[in-house]
Amino acid sequence: MDPTGVDIVALPVVEIELSRLSSVYSPRTSGEDPEHVETLLSAQGELPPILVHRPTMRVIDGLHRLKVARVRGETKIAVRLIDGTESDAFVLAVEANVRHGLPLSLADRKRAAVRIIGTHPQWSDRRVASATGISASTVADLRKRRGQDGDEARIGRDGRIRPVDSSEGRRLAAELIRSHPDLSLRQVAKQVGISPETVRDVRGRLEQGESPIPDGSRRLRTKPESLRRPEQDFGHAGGRDRQAVLERLKADPALRLTETGRILLRMLSLHSIDGQEWERILRGVPPHWDAVVARCARDHAQIWAAFADRLEGRATDLAAG
């Protein structure tokens, strides 16, 4: 499911004449990449269907596949047709080119974000960031440059409308976290009316001794005792505690003897390597892939965060029941 609410995979596949298609929607300003075209030409089997905006017949996703079809002398190509507005179609084009295939350049992603800010001004920074593959702070900066940071409320990734100025919600969340440190992110978010991700940021700031409101200047004099913990870098992230918990989980037959349980244990083990190994992996990432790997890591971090929120919510529901 994409940010505009369209289940692309569920759309039927049809064949369309190449002569009817246009590639005007592509957010890739440099056009086709010859090396990527050559890679697709040598690929075995059929290529996936391209995505086309039905009202205009413009290609949303599949610029290189369209080029391959033309090079091969084909007259038709497999297509999934999307309805809706041109602005929503452009969002789909950007998201498709960010999440698979040949990644968009950072410059193209920023240009796309500027365009989406203009066509979807009520979208939150996080929602625009999710569609374009850049950080929410970068989106906020681009929005300020366009003079569009004065909106009172915006629509988040979950479709809910929230006020842009969350200072009061952050302050209330901080008070609740201090007085009830065992509450889950969802519980705090529900009580103060902000998103779980904002609560996560507030908690992180408190743990680092910072102000819950990101004004860039204020810092707390001391960390609350209940929130102090070792410095969270690769070498000091509670590794011993995690290993002890992991060993307990491995000993539980409910996990060790079931397929899903073994998958979970392998995932947890993979992320339980020590700080030196993390540093070695970090140094081994080629510089030209830094931005792409960083984006993938952040995407995976968001998935784990959502997974944790669901578990915490389920535990709360069981306790309440």
Rank of each mutant, 00 (worst) to 15 (best):
M1S: 07
M1K: 04
D2I: 14
T4C: 08
I8V: 13
V9C: 09
A10R: 02
A10E: 12
L11N: 03
V13C: 12
L18T: 05
L21E: 04
S22P: 02
S26L: 03
S30K: 00
E35A: 09
V37A: 03
A43D: 14
P49R: 00
R54S: 14
M57T: 02
R58M: 06
I60C: 01
V68H: 03
V79R: 00
V79D: 15
L81I: 07
L81Y: 04
G84S: 10
T85H: 02
L92D: 00
A93E: 10
A93D: 02
P103V: 14
P103L: 05
L104M: 06
L106Y: 01
A107I: 08
D108A: 10
R109G: 14
R111H: 11
A113R: 01
R115E: 10
R115I: 11
R115V: 11
T119G: 06
T119K: 11
P121R: 02
Q122D: 15
W123E: 00
D125F: 07
A129L: 04
T132I: 02
I134K: 04
T138V: 11
A140G: 07
D141F: 06
R143G: 07
R143S: 12
R146W: 13
E152K: 07
A153Q: 12
R154Q: 11
R154N: 08
G159Q: 01
G159Y: 07
R162L: 12
V164P: 05
S166I: 07
E168M: 06
R170L: 05
R171Q: 13
A173I: 10
H180R: 15
D182F: 08
K190P: 04
V202P: 04
V202K: 00
R203W: 11
R205V: 13
R205C: 03
S211M: 01
S211R: 05
R218D: 00
R218I: 10
R219Y: 12
L220P: 03
T222R: 12
T222W: 02
K223M: 06
S226G: 09
P230W: 03
P230G: 09
F234W: 13
G239Q: 15
R248E: 15
L249G: 05
L257G: 09
L257M: 10
T258S: 07
E259H: 08
R262A: 09
R262M: 07
I263A: 12
R266I: 04
M267F: 15
L270Y: 11
L270G: 08
E279N: 05
P287S: 11
R295F: 02
D299C: 06
D299E: 15
A301S: 11
A301I: 08
I303L: 14
A306C: 08
A306V: 02
A306F: 06
L311H: 12
L311A: 06
E312C: 00
E312R: 00
G313L: 03
A315P: 07
L318V: 10
L318R: 05
A320F: 07
